[in-house]
């Protein structure tokens, strides 16, 4: 299990370095998704499968989709289509594909290995996490719900304002 941790740690560091070294936002997003998946594997090796699943679903799923939406909304037009064709060369998706293939090989290896290779989630299983979340931490869970509501209202407010500013009214 430590080998899996080391490999995914290296993948995470390399992918994260590539994120801040890219010049185009979409390429950086590809590397960032691979980095988050590698961190999810690290969570799994630490004996936290529930958090690993959440990392994949929310970070690599929902938040990355938000980034992709915004980046795609920012450069519209005929130039963007030509740019898209130029960008879709093998050299661009080769790096993230290699790093993702390493993670996939790790997953296949973990699934093929016997059960004893898995870290035993002793006091860390999802049931204990849920009991702690809605036991001593229930007030903080309510606060988190309020934060999400505030984020929803704020995002709606800013999105509506920008649509109005696009109609007339120079800033």
């Amino acid at each position: 299990m430590e080998t899996v941790f080391d490999i995914s740690a290296v993948v995470a560091v390399v992918a994260t370095l590539m994120v801040i070294a890219q010049s185009r936002a979409v390429h950086a997003l590809l590397y960032l998704t691979v980095s988050l998946l590698a961190v999810a594997v690290v969570f799994f090796t630490l004996g936290a499968p529930f958090v690993a699943a959440l990392e994949v679903i929310i970070y690599a799923g929902a938040i990355m989709v938000l980034f992709v939406f915004v980046i795609m909304m920012l450069n519209l037009g005929a130039e963007a289509a030509r740019q898209e064709r130029r960008w879709l060369t093998p050299a661009d998706w080769f790096g993230p594909a290699i790093l993702g293939a390493i993670l996939l090989a790790e997953m296949v290896w973990v699934l093929a290995s016997p059960q004893s290779a898995f870290p035993a989630p002793a006091a860390n299983d999802p049931r204990a996490v849920g009991a702690a979340l809605f036991g001593p931490y229930v007030l903080v869970a309510d606060l988190a719900a309020l934060v999400l509501l505030a984020g929803l209202v704020g995002a709606y407010h800013f999105g509506r304002r920008s649509a109005e500013a696009g109609e007339g009214e120079a800033p």
């Binding site: 529930f50 938040i63 938000l66 204990a128 407010h157 800013f158």
Partner: peptide
């Protein structure tokens, strides 16, 4: 061996989701 670390990660995840939605709306504007 405590579940508190994963609970804290859940709160960080919630905060990150709210932060990135507001931040990206700000980026658009």
């Amino acid at each position: 061996g405590q579940p508190d670390g994963q609970v804290m990660f859940l709160f960080i995840l919630t905060m990150a989701a709210a932060e990135v939605s507001v931040g990206l709306a700000l980026v658009l504007q």
